[in-house]
Amino acid sequence: MYCRRIYVAMMFVFFAASFTFGQSKADLINEYLSEGHKAGLFNGNVLVAEKGKIVTEAAVGYADALQKDTLTMAYRFHNGSISKEFDAVGIMMLAEQGKLQLSDKVSRFFPDLPAWAKKISIWNLLQYTSGLPEVQYGSVHGDADNWKDLKKVKALDFEPGTRYAYNNNNTFLRRMIIAKVAGKSFNDFVQQDILKQAGIKNGIVDPTQTDALIARSFDNNFKQDGLEVPISGWTCLDATDFYKWAECINHFRLISPASTKTILTPFKEGNQCGLGSGVIDGDTVKKHVHDGVAVHYQALEYVDNKNGIDRVIIILSNQRQGNVYKIAEAICNILDGMPFQKLE
């Protein structure tokens, strides 16, 4: 306890000294991230905004494992499970247009699937309560492989709507339903019906080796990961466009407050929902938090408006260290004029 008090006191001294030397909050955030990179604890891009204004944008480290190209804010990152927000929002857009209902069973769209498709509703897919098994990542190397596996499923793991099991077959079927109803590929739907409407110009779905300005993920030994994905439909954004996306959710620019509440409502407290997790009160998103991991990518979308501060923090890393929440906490402390702990 004594040592902790000394440490906290030192953090206060560091914080006070920083302002003594005229450092702004943006300077402190940028220095914090830079020091974290030097310590080998952060490589990626960060955007911080409050009340609709960007406080700072920071590109820190390398674009790939070769360590020749440094990151800029133009680089786009895989963001793992946060990409599931696009199919969740897409489902609600089509529901608002009267093209589907959340009570619709999967069999309505894909009658050739086994009998279990007559039991699973779109609502079950949104809440991860379908009972479907997980994607077989060892043998699935594309959508066609996954369709074959789904057609072989004879029995569900549990009765739909009775339990929660977070897995990507729920996501896969949401995307396939959108494609079926919209009459276009899910990738085209995202580009034309979501990103364009959101004013996002640089988003890309399922980038390949030939696409420019894609941050490549790598491990601590600088071994680079591939871009191959077992199932399609993963939307990659740069931090600026990610902020636009968060603001679309916050201000109901694509779907209504009621639809937003629907995909912010989990099966049970602590479970994931279509938008990750959050709180909505009337027409105000009070909290929206979603993290994602894909190989050595890690991302965090953090929105806090509980006290009217309208704070958005976007963290995109291509060298996963498991510390995005710690980084967000430090940034919040800096913004609030509180002591903060360096990455270690």
Rank of each mutant, 00 (worst) to 15 (best):
W147R: 01
G52P: 11
F172Y: 08
D225E: 00
D225A: 11
M10T: 15
S139Q: 13
D238W: 01
K105F: 09
F21R: 06
L335T: 06
N167W: 14
K286V: 07
T284H: 07
L316V: 13
Y7E: 05
T20V: 11
D188S: 11
E50L: 09
L195C: 07
V89C: 02
L227W: 04
L100K: 03
S18V: 14
F189E: 03
L125C: 09
G90C: 00
D219F: 01
S185K: 00
I214Y: 02
W116T: 12
C332S: 10
G308W: 07
T262M: 05
F86G: 00
W116V: 11
C332P: 09
S107E: 14
G282C: 04
V190G: 10
Q23I: 15
G138E: 07
I315S: 06
G274W: 00
L47M: 05
L300G: 07
D238S: 00
D304Q: 02
P266T: 10
I200E: 01
E329G: 12
F109D: 09
F252Q: 05
V89H: 03
M338Y: 13
F172C: 02
K180P: 10
L227E: 04
V140L: 03
G36L: 05
A179C: 07
T162H: 05
H290E: 08
N167F: 06
K201C: 10
K180I: 02
V153K: 04
G40Q: 09
K118D: 12
I204V: 09
W147P: 06
A179H: 06
L33V: 03
T265N: 01
L264W: 00
S185F: 05
V205L: 02
D291P: 15
L113G: 03
K51E: 15
Y166I: 06
N318C: 08
T162Y: 14
S217R: 13
G322K: 03
Y128K: 01
A294N: 15
E344M: 14
T20N: 12
T265S: 03
G44F: 06
V324N: 13
Y2E: 14
A59M: 04
T129D: 03
W147K: 03
N169M: 13
Q191H: 14
V229P: 08
C3P: 15
T20L: 13
A117T: 14
C273W: 02
F14M: 15
S317H: 06
